[in-house]
Amino acid sequence: MNAQVAVSPTSLIDQIVVPGDVVLDLSNMTNQTIKLGSGLRQESDAISAMRAGKFSYSKPNKYWVESSHKRYIPRTEDHVLGIVVDYKADNFWVDIKGPQLALLPGLAFEGATRRSIPKFEACTLLYLRVVKTNIGMNPELSGTDASGKASVFGPLKDGFMFETSTGLSRMLLSSPTCPVLEALGKKLSFEIATGLNGRVWVNAAAPRSVIIVANAIMNSETLSATQQRIMVEKLLAKISD
């Protein structure tokens, strides 16, 4: 099976693809199951790319196109940072940088009942989870994890929020820890919440550290791992003297 996989896709794995590129041919990949991620679609026997980006593969059978955008397309189980816009009919309308506003039911919080719906004023920042993304409907969010516990989700107090591209926020969440955060973490202590929709929230005791962390992250958009480390070191050296 593995040998077969290696035939056609290896040529394109980790390569840049553009919309319309046929990346996989299913006719010579019979009797195996594959999972398609974002940016790919099936037309009978051909899998083609719908977005420009890097065609990626992860064992055993996942394929997707990795790209970076300013706008976020919601996907289920993504963790996002949303801004409350309005409260209407037991639902919060939340801006998650997507093409539509998302709906956050007032009851989707741990311990929330009809009597005790949490109150968020407009422009509150929330850390949320995408639950439903049906075509033609506004995406639905939740303030709890899958087992109904609040865990990490909920409103974010203080700190500073800034916007990045979706690619950068994905890089910040990657494991092992991305070099910027690692280098910054050695010298500064800070809290960070990254949403896959390209929003990052940072908090620290001193406003100075928040600004350093925020700018270091924004600068690292186009830098390689080593460049990121050098950049952070320079930044920290400048601050210390």
């Binding site: 801006d95 506003l101 509150t124 974010l156 500073f160 100075r208 700018n215």
Partner: peptide, 26 residues
Amino acid sequence: LANMWRLTVNESKFVETALQYELRVD
């Protein structure tokens, strides 16, 4: 509404507190 850019409470508060320390967000 979805396309509008909006400022969160956190940002506006932080910009003001940082300015007290003569710091700017950029």
